[in-house]
Design a protein around this nucleic acid. Structure first.
Lengths: 205, 205
DNA sequence: GAGTAAAGTGAGTAATTGCTCGTTTTCTAC
DNA sequence: GTAGAAAACGAGCAATTACTCACTTTACTC
């Protein structure tokens, strides 16, 4: 499988270099897409030599993977903070706050997430933001366990899986695919309404 | 812009060639992904020379685009038939039948759709199966107009857009992303239940 | 069967591009 | 100040690959 990540940078100079390379990767990915992303171009854009790029990243794919990871981590951090803040809120408000936080983060990182979603050989959102989905699922599981404790394991997990699909699809649409006539904000509140209802309703509906 | 499609084949011999090339494209796309798809390899797999391939397809992208189109059309045809057949059924049964038909078609073409979803520079499902989504949206619009005629344009279109997101996301998950503990069949019926409810409920929920 | 258009061939080319490696520069520690 | 490690450099190699084109074969038409 070969080494995915090279030795970590130790000097602050090289840490900056790594960040600059990832920033450049993001910029080029947005502009040219994955197909138009060349390591030479990334290096030039970052103001760095190709050799330096390959000192820190084993190959092109590791480079993109590192960018994906960094974006995933940043979104996850903000989302986690938002989740913690919902602790004292009632169900509907809590769900709404989390969904809003997700949309906000997707908008913040729209360019990178969109490019990875569209162009990378990494596929659908469950692969682009796996930790985010994992965290969301955990949050949602608490809801279901609280409000519908009588559900069997399979029924519960299926309901959670559907809720994840709905949440991600709706938020993605609100951010990336909103045709004329569709109000993105309304789409988000509608989704939150639906989720709050669907997650707290008892028994096999 | 250049010519996307070359002159259409007139003899039956060449029509077969075109089909064989598309079949080969599908097979290689499934196995090696978009990155591993080379025109020489496609030609060899199809038992045809590269020159023949380029006689019918302007470039590599047109080739993949043609495959996408063919798959989209095939799914659309089956789905339309299923929709027509639901005319006499009551709401819940009609929605269920359509959702089931969609899942069935996605399963039938899982390999190609999955590969296009994951690996091509075409991105999310709305780009892979645009006509299918369009047709589904039309079907759903009838429902909403019937059962919630009091809705304003924006409210109605937003609701439809959400319904499309839910439907496609749920069916995609049922087919492509069903972890242990989640029952795909149950996921589909759950989705149909939710849709039948959400599309027929009156007023801004 | 002659003439013409359609279809098919495949060796070759031109360009791209991921990545290496020998060298040079910068930093750190003693 | 100096030794050695860390970081950066960038020309160029090796391999891939999309696509062309001069030519042959097959199919229609009259």
């Amino acid at each position: 499988m070969a080494q995915r990540t090279r030795n970590a940078p130790v000097q602050s100079r090289s840490k900056e270099t790594v960040e600059r390379i990832l920033d450049a990767t993001a910029r080029i990915l947005e502009q040219r897409g994955y197909g138009g992303l060349t390591t030479n171009h990334v290096a030039a854009e970052a103001g760095v030599s190709v050799g330096s790029l390959y000192r820190w990243f084993a190959d092109k794919q590791s480079l993109v993977e590192a960018l994906r990871q960094r974006t995933n981590d940043r979104i996850l951090a903000e989302l986690s903070a938002a989740m913690v803040a919902t602790a004292p809120l009632p169900s509907r408000e809590a769900v709404g706050a989390v969904v809003n936080a997700l949309v906000e983060q997707l908008r913040e990182h729209a360019a990178v997430v969109g490019a990875l979603l569209r162009e990378s050989p990494m596929g659908t959102h469950q692969n682009v933001l796996p930790d985010v989905e994992q965290r969301l699922a955990g949050y949602v599981r608490v809801f279901v366990l609280q409000h519908a404790p009588e559900l069997g394991d399979s029924e519960r997990e299926t309901r959670i899986h559907l809720a994840m699909g709905i949440t991600l699809a709706a938020c993605m649409r609100a951010v990336f695919d909103c045709p004329d006539g569709v109000d993105p904000e309304r789409l988000v509140t509608m989704t939150a309404d639906l989720l709050a209802l669907g997650l707290t309703v008892p028994g096999p509906s």
